[in-house]
Every structure is written in C-alpha cells, then in structure tokens.
Design a protein around this nucleic acid. Structure first.
Lengths: 342, 342
DNA sequence: CCCATAAATTTACGCGCGTAAATATTTAAT
DNA sequence: ATTAAATATTTACGCGCGTAAATTTATGGG
C-alpha cells in the first residue's frame, strides 16, 4: 500500500493504463488483453483501490444490483429466506441489497423508493400481501422487473414463487385427522403474516374434505410478537379448556412456539405418545422449531427452492431479455416434518 | 401524479423554483422561504419525485448515512441489536445501512469497503473480534469514525460500547453457587462468537472467587449452528453423565437452547424445583429464551442502552466535531433474568 | 514486410446531484 | 420611498465513474 488512491483516474495513471480501459477491466476482467490485465492486477496488489460502486452505477445502462425486500428481518423466517436469496444472487454474480420493512407496510414503499436510486436490474419482493401498496408495487414494476416471493399479490409483478399452502396445510390436516383427533385452528384475529389467510382457508377446505367441522380460534393481539401472543392468549384458551379437541394446528411456527411454552407451563404433556394429552403443530419449519420441547411437528417450506427459483426467474427476465414471458406462478410443495409435538 | 419526473432539474422547473434552491430544500426544508417551501411542497403533492440518494451523497462533504455492520444477521442476537441500532439512527435523522457479514470475517472487510462508497458519516461495527482484520478496521477508522459495539478490539475504533461480561457472568455464577450445585461451563472448542472467550475467563475467575473449581466442557463443532451443536454434543455429554455437577452454564443462549432440547429428549427434568435433576442457564437473553421449556434463566444484555449509547457516542464525534475525545469504553451491566431453567 | 484485425487510447460527454460565488430579488425595518 | 439584510437565482464547476466514437497502437498470419 503506497499512497492513497482517490479515484479511477489516479489508479489508471499508477498502473500505466488509460482510465476507460481500467473501467472496462472492472466490468469484465476478461475483456482486456492479458498483458493489460496483468499490469492492472499488479497495480491492484500494490495499491489499495476499490471503485466506488455507487458512482459506477450512476451512469450505467444496467447494473448488477438486485434489491431484496422482506417484511421483517427480525422474524427468523424472513431472515432465513432473505439470506438464501442473498446468497443465490451473489452466486450468480450479482450484488443483493437486503432491506427489511420492519413490519411496517409503509416502509415497504419507502424501501422501493430508495431502491430506485440504486438502479437495480431487478427486485425480489416478499410483500405484505393485501397490506402492501398495490399501486406502488405495480408502478415500480413498470420500470424495474419485480418478482414476488413468499406472498402473492394478484397480477402484480412479473412472477410469483412460493409454497402451495393448500397442499401443505392439507398434508398436515390429513396427517392429524388420521392419527388422532381432528385439529382446531389457532391464529390471530388480525394476522400480519401475509399467508395466514391462506392457511385458515386451506384448513377449512381440508377439514370439510375430511368430513370434519372446522374449529377456528382467533385471538387478539397487535404487532409481531407472535410467540408472546401465542403464549398469553393460547395459554388462556388452554387453561379455560376452550379448545374443542386435543389437537391444535397453529397458523405458523412462531405462534406454535408460544403455545408450546404455555402448554409446558400449564403441565400439559404435548406429543403423540400414549401418555400425552395435547398435540400442537405449526407451519413453516422455523429455524428453531427443531429445538422446541418437544420438537415441533410442522410443514417445511422449501426455502432453498423458493430462493433459487425466484432468483432464476428474475434473471431470466433481463438476461435473455427478448420476449417478456407471461406472468407465471410457481408453487413448491410443503413437506410434512414429523417431529414429536403431534 | 402527472408525468414522470426524471431528476431534480425537471422537478425544479415544474415547481417553478431553481434547482439549487430545491436542492437546499431537500437538505433542510426550514432553510428556504415559507412561500418557496409551499411551492415545492405543492409540487411534491402533484408529482412523484424522490431525489436520488446516491447521487446526493456523491458530492456531499458530509452525508447522513451511517453504516452498521454485524457478524451474522441470521443470529437473532445480532438481528435484534442491529434492529435497535437502525431505529436509533433513524430517530436521530440519519439513514442506517445494515450489513451482515454472514458469519464470514472476510466479508466484514468487503462490507467496510462497500461502505466507503457510501461516504457514511460514521460506522457502527460489531466485529468478529480477534477474527476481524484489525488493520483493515484501523485504516478504515482513519478515514471514517468507527464505534465498536458488542465485541471489543483493543485500541481499534473511537470507542467501544458493550456489556461487562465479567460482571454479568459473575452474577450468574454467584446465583447458581448460592442456590445449588456450582455450575459447569459448556461451550464450543473453537467459538466463533466474539465474547465466548470472555465468558469462559469470567467463569473461571468467578468460580475461583467463590472457592469452587471450574469445570469446563468444550465440544467440537464448526459453523454457526449453535443450537444443533449444543443439542448433539451436549446430548452426548448428558447421556454419558459427563458433567460433574447438575448445573450447566452455557456460553450463550443459542447453545443453551440446544442443550435444553437434548435434555428434554433424554427425559431430564430441567429446573430449580425439588423434582428437577438438571439446571441449565445461558447468556444474552435471546429473543426466544423466554419461550423455551422451561423458560431459560439467563443474563440479559441491555440491548437498548448499548444501541443508544453506540449511536450517541458516534454522533458526538461528528456533530460537535471539535476536539476528538480519547477512546472510551462503556460497559453496561447485565441483568440476571431468573426464569425456570435454573 | 504488409495488411487486416483486435485491442488500447484519446476525446468528449453524460449521470443526478452538491456547492460556491456573483447577481438579482424579496422582505423587513427605517 | 429608501435602504440594509435575507433569501433566490444564475452560472459554473465538481464528484467518480460509464460509454460512445474516433484514433492510435499492438498482434498475428501470410
């Protein structure tokens, strides 16, 4: 590290190559002559220079930036799927920028706006769903291709990639009905999670298909503290003996984790063994679900497949370029993860 | 929303104000005449224009950007403290950019490099500690003020804000010794977590102060799957009856969650009641620790205080500006959170 | 050695905005 | 109405880089 390099101009002069050629090198090292490349790389060894990414993107036709927006990074589900999407982008040679809307649908709009400045090649958006600003997303998509994942919005974005919640919930309902009492459904009155409505609907349909009458228990609660709400409100229902069967299907794993905690505190024996008196199941295969006591029976979404498909679908849009394909929806199947809680 | 506004020039012309004045408005709306402000805000109502943040920062002496770098956002501990830091910055009128190093110390360097392009006013860094690239952080700090939080690096950065782990671990050891058998210490052989070494040292010193002999159990395991390692390796130790007492202090909560899960599977009764045969405690008050079965006794770090102090320390550096104060270290006390696991 | 081709350089301009200095206009006070 | 102070506008340049077109230099085959 000799002296400070302030910009590409300076770096070009110390490496003995013209600035436009250096610029070309940084865009694609293979695009310059071998002897030139070696000179530049020798200079890179000696001097500490990194092109200013934001200045790079300022005047580019097409950048390698990909915006990734999720509703709430504090939720391990989104943190996990966000991470996978980030890695998939990096692997494809793009630079992902992961933004969290902190549980606030208005911030989703703000996030899309700040992304505009980045001139991303495309955006991967896990929207709030019906809480999202449809018009904002649509008009954004008119400029920059958006692929939705996790939660769908009808006719918004170029594509949607997610889980077939009707299939996955049916899998769980079928298993629960077959192996014991039919499940009640436990959820929040005003769910923030975009797929909660799908889960309830899927539960109802599936129960009816199995000749059972649906039993839904909806509790109050605001915000994203799902475990807390599940624990407090679920605990109340449990101690009141309010649930109509001994089997409870929770709207998602975070909710189930709270209920599990309440059940433990109240002395219930949760599980499917003969000595047990309560079964609890969730949905999503939350990173911590395998460590609950007992380990949580749940539905695993195929994070990996969803992340990879979202990324490849988006990239197909601007890499081939040509004919913009029809908006397509791809649903991956959920997998039943049988652990000990149900 | 009439027609598309492409840049400040266009927006200035439709609002009937000159571009430099509009620019002034966006930097500080109070700095322009009331009549001018009203014209601009009327135009803002009518047209959809947002200044390009990156172009804004390109030529600014001092931006309102704050870089925030944490080792691993997939770890709820960092996700939580990262969130708090973000919010504290926003509240102070700054724009935080939260970057995760994905558990990879090399990516920490990359993150600092990309931050340079953003010309942040300052950076809040939770480093890997001894795994971090000391020289890289130091030379970065020479240009842009860095405040370290969570993990310290001697003589690096303008300040450090964290928890007094010697105090906090002592609190726990004291409690455990007083209320039952003295604790063993359970950790990974090669801990990635920057504060793991502090925890071990603090445990040893504290045990000796209490006239007890330290008992440390270190297990193999790579990566960030702390729960899994805690469950598998801890479970092995438990079923071998390897622990020398019935009380186990885990290096952190994620580890404890894994051990708790193993203990449950092996039929241990975890808790401090008379019918229990195992006590497990952790450190950090992980967001999920209150929902484990039984709820985890642990040490709470003062997330809020650490986040706020880090932010205010950094801001004091460039807001007053004048005399750069001595490097200072602020340690907040941990709080003993007595729940049911120990 | 000549020539066709490939690659590098020069030149020139643009991105969207900040900022400083000079000038013009408005405002408030006399 | 006059004047000084406050605010706007104009003009001009810069940030760090992309990119296109014209020109020069290097490469390789015959």
């Amino acid at each position: 590290m000799q002296r400070k390099i302030r910009n590409m101009e300076e770096f070009a002069s110390v490496s003995g190559i013209s600035r436009p050629t250096v610029s070309k090198y940084f865009n694609d090292p293979e695009s310059v002559r071998v002897s030139t490349r070696k000179k530049i790389e020798a200079a890179l060894e000696e001097y500490d220079y990194h092109p200013n990414v934001f200045a790079m993107n300022q005047n580019r036709r097409t950048t390698k930036n990909i915006g990734v927006v999720v509703p709430n990074l504090a939720d391990p589900f989104f943190s996990e799927i966000g991470r996978r999407v980030e890695l998939a982008c990096i692997e494809a040679g793009y630079s992902p920028i992961l933004l969290s809307s902190h549980g606030n649908p208005e911030m989703e709009r703000d996030n899309l706006n700040s992304l505009k400045s980045l001139k991303p090649a495309g955006v991967l958006l896990a929207p709030f769903g019906r809480l999202s600003d449809t018009d904002a997303v649509k008009s954004f998509d008119a400029e920059i291709p958006v692929v939705l994942f996790d939660a769908n919005m009808p006719d918004v974005g170029r594509a949607f990639v997610g889980t077939d919640h009707f299939q996955s919930v049916d899998l769980m309902v079928e298993y629960l009905c077959r192996s014991g009492e039919p499940p009640c459904f436990f959820e929040m009155k005003k769910p923030l999670n975009p797929n909660a409505n799908k889960h309830r609907q899927a539960y109802i349909e599936s129960m009816e298909r199995h000749g059972q009458t649906p039993n839904i228990f909806r509790v109050n609660g605001e915000g994203w503290d799902f475990e807390e709400i599940g624990k407090v409100e679920g605990g109340r229902l449990l101690s009141d003996g309010a649930f109509s069967t001994n089997t409870i299907l929770c709207s998602n794993d975070r909710f189930a984790i709270g209920l599990l905690s309440a059940a433990y505190g109240l002395g219930f024996k949760v599980g499917h063994g003969p000595e047990c008196n309560l079964r609890i199941a969730g949905h999503d295969d939350h990173p911590f679900s395998r460590f609950t006591c007992p380990p949580l029976t749940t539905i695993a979404q195929d994070y990996e497949a969803i992340a990879n498909r979202s990324v490849s679908t988006l990239f197909a849009l601007f890499e081939k370029g040509q004919v913009p394909p029809e908006r397509q929806e791809k649903l991956f199947e959920g997998r039943l993860i049988m652990r000990e809680s149900a």
